[in-house]
Simulated scan of single mutants.
Amino acid sequence: MVARARRSDAVLNRERIVTAARAALAELNGADEDLALHLVAKSAGVGQGTLYRNFPTREHLLAEVYRQEIDELVSAVPALLATETPLDALTRWLDRLIEYARVKRGVMAAIEASAWQDLYADNHSKLDNALTALLTKGQAEGEIREGVDAADVILLLGALSRVPRTEWETRAPTVVTIIVDGLRRR
Rank of each mutant, 00 (worst) to 15 (best):
N54A: 04
L35P: 06
W168D: 07
A110Y: 02
T50I: 04
A76I: 03
P78W: 06
E72H: 12
T177Y: 00
L39F: 06
R53F: 02
S75A: 01
R53K: 15
V176A: 01
T132I: 07
V180K: 05
A151K: 14
L90K: 00
A110K: 06
E99D: 12
A133T: 09
A130V: 14
L28V: 08
V175K: 00
A3H: 09
R96F: 05
L37Q: 13
N129Y: 07
W168Y: 01
D95K: 08
K104V: 10
N29A: 11
D149L: 10
S8K: 12
L134H: 07
G158L: 12
P173K: 06
H60T: 09
T136D: 10
L94P: 00
L183F: 11
L119P: 01
A82L: 03
R4S: 04
I98F: 06
A26Y: 01
E141M: 00
E59H: 10
G30A: 08
S125T: 14
L87A: 13
P173F: 04
A159G: 15
M108P: 00
S43K: 15
P56Y: 12
L80D: 02
E99F: 10
L37C: 08
P164G: 13
E99Q: 14
I70P: 06
V180T: 12
E112C: 07
L160N: 07
P78N: 01
N13Y: 01
H38F: 09
R186F: 03
V176Y: 00
R4G: 01
A89H: 09
A150D: 11
R102S: 11
G106Q: 09
I179F: 06
G147N: 05
A24C: 07
I98H: 07
L80C: 00
L73I: 04
L35E: 08
S161F: 05
N54W: 01
P78Y: 04
A140Q: 14
L25E: 11
R96N: 13
R4I: 06
T91S: 03
I70A: 04
V180W: 00
A41G: 02
D122Q: 15
W116A: 13
A5Q: 11
E64G: 04
N54F: 01
R53A: 07
A21G: 08
V77H: 03
L28N: 03
A130I: 09
R22Y: 01
R165H: 12
G47S: 15
A26E: 12
V2D: 12
E27Y: 00
R53V: 05
R53I: 02
R67F: 08
I70C: 00
I154E: 13
A133M: 10
T85F: 00
I17N: 02
E146P: 02
G30N: 11
A133C: 07
V74P: 00
Y52G: 09
S75Q: 14
L35D: 05
L134G: 02
G47I: 13
F55R: 02
I178F: 11
V46S: 07
T57F: 03
T91G: 11
Y120D: 06
W93D: 04
E141I: 06
L62Q: 09
V65C: 11
E15Q: 14
R165E: 02
D128Y: 13
R105A: 11
A151R: 12
L156P: 05
G106K: 09
L97Q: 09
N129R: 15
P56R: 15
L157Y: 05
L97S: 08
I70T: 03
S125E: 15
I70D: 04
S75F: 05
R145E: 02
V2H: 13
A26W: 04
Y100F: 15
E141S: 14
A21Y: 06
R7V: 07
R14N: 10
